[in-house]
Computed example of a mutant assay.
Amino acid sequence: MPDTSPASYAVEEGQHGSGPIVWASIIATTCLLLFFFQKILWLVVPFLLALILYYFLYPSMQALIYRGMSREAAASTVTVGFLALLAVVGVALAPWVTGQVAGWQEAVIGYVQGGLQLLDRSLRALEAAWAPLARAHLADTVAGRLTQGAGSVTDHLEPIVVGIMAWAPSLMLAPFLAYFFLRDGRRFQRFLGGAVPNAFFEKTLYLLHEIDRTSRAYFQGLIKLTVLDTLTLAAGLWLLGIPGPFALGLICAVLAWIPYVGSILGGLLVVLVAATDFPDAPGMAYWAVALFVLVRLLDDFVYMPLTIGKSLALHPLVTVLMIFVGGAVAGIAGLMLVLPVLGVVMVIGETIGVIVTDPRLMARHRHALALRREQASSDL
C-alpha cells in the first residue's frame, strides 16, 4: 500500500527543509506578533485561556460525540458542566476568600518582613563565618536597601490589586470563546479551506492539521505539566508541614508558565511563606528552597520531556534565544506567548516555504488560473 501521509507528500514533492530566508521570516513574524499582542493583552489573555480550556474540555466533548451526541449538544453539555463545577468551587471557597481579603495587605507585609528577617539572619551567619563580609558590613547594607524597597512595594500593592480587578471582566470571555471553539472549530477550518486554490488544497489540509496538532500538544502538555508540578510541590510542602500546600503548589505551577521569571517568583513565594510561618526555624526555609530546586530539576529533565518537550520540534538554542527575544519585545507577555506563537508561525512559515519553492505546485496553480481564464472567455 502506498504511503499517503503528509510526510510522504513532502518527500515526493522535493521538500528539503526550511532555509535561512524562511526562518528569518518566521522569527520576524513572531516578533511582530508579540509586539502586536502586547497592545491587545485584554483580548490575547482571554483567548489564550480559552485555548487552554478548549484543549482541556475537548476529550470530554469527543467522548460524548462517540456516544451519539451531536457536536453542538456535546459542546453545550461540556461547557455548562464546567461552569457548574466552577460555580460550586467558587461558592465553597467564598467564605475563605472573604476572610482572607480583609487582611490581604497585612498578610503581604508580614510575608515580606518574614523574608527580610530570614535574609538578615543568613547574611549575619555568613559574616560570622567569613571576616571580609563582616568588615564590609554586608548585612546592614543589604537590610537597609531591602527595607526601603519593601516600603515601596507596600505602597504599590493597592494599584496592583486594582489593576488585577480591572482584568476580571475580560477574563470572563474565556469560557465564552472556548464554547465556540468547541462547537464551531471544524466549521472555521472548512471556511479557511474553501478559500484556498485547488492546487494548494492538500498542503492547506496538512497546514491546518499541523497547527491543530502543535497547539493541542503544547496546551495539553502544559495542563499535564501543571498537574504534575502541583502534585509534586504539594506533596513536598505537606511533608515539610508548611500550611496550604496544595494552594501554594498550584500557584507556583501556574507561575511556571512564565519561563524563568515565573519559577523565580514561585520559589520566592514558598520561601517567604516558610520564613514567616516558622520564624524560629530558619531551616524550614532552606528545606523549602531545596524542595523547589528538586522540583525544578524534575520539571526540566523528567516532566517537561514527557509533556510538552516533544510538542514543538525546536532546537534548544532556538528555544532559549526566542524566550529572551520574546521578553525583550513584549516583556512578561512575550515570555508567556513566545513558544506557542513561534510553534504556530513555524508550521505556517515552513508550509508556505514548501509551497512557493515547489515548482510542481506552482505550475499546477498557474495551469488552473489559465484554465479558468480560458473557460471564462470561451463563450465571448
Rank of each mutant, 00 (worst) to 15 (best):
L53E: 01
Y54C: 02
Y54M: 02
Y55E: 10
Y55T: 03
Y55D: 04
F56C: 04
F56W: 06
F56Q: 00
L57H: 08
P59G: 05
S60W: 13
M61T: 12
M61V: 06
M61R: 13
Q62C: 04
Q62A: 15
Q62Y: 14
A63E: 04
I65L: 11
I65P: 06
Y66V: 13
R67W: 10
R67T: 08
R67C: 08
S70E: 14
S70W: 05
R71C: 12
R71V: 07
E72R: 14
A75F: 00
S76R: 11
T77N: 12
T77Q: 10
V78T: 01
V78D: 01
V80T: 09
V80A: 13
L83W: 04
L83P: 03
L86S: 15
L86N: 14
L86C: 14
L86F: 14
L86P: 08
V88N: 03
V88M: 04
V89Q: 08
A92I: 09
A92R: 13
L93H: 00
A94F: 06
W96T: 15
G99N: 00
G99T: 02
Q100N: 15
Q100H: 13
Q100Y: 11
Q100I: 03
V101W: 10
A102F: 10
G103I: 08
G103N: 14
G103E: 11
Q105P: 08
Q105W: 10
E106S: 11
E106L: 00
E106P: 01
A107N: 08
Y111I: 11
V112C: 05
Q113W: 03
G115Y: 02
L116M: 15
Q117N: 05
Q117K: 12
L119D: 04
R121V: 09
S122D: 07
A125E: 15
L126G: 14
E127S: 06
A128L: 12
A128F: 12
A128H: 03
A129Q: 07
P132E: 02
P132C: 00
L133C: 03
L133K: 01
A134G: 11
A134S: 11
R135D: 04
H137K: 14
H137Y: 05
D140G: 14
T141C: 00
T141Y: 00
V142E: 05
A143V: 03
G144F: 00
G144T: 02
G144L: 06
R145A: 09
R145W: 09
L146S: 04
Q148A: 07
Q148T: 09
G149T: 05
G151D: 09
G151W: 05
S152L: 09
V153L: 13
V153E: 10
V153R: 08
T154S: 12
T154C: 10
D155H: 03
H156T: 08
H156V: 13
H156I: 13
L157E: 07
E158M: 09
E158Y: 07
P159I: 10
I160G: 11
I160R: 00
V161S: 07
I164C: 07
I164S: 04
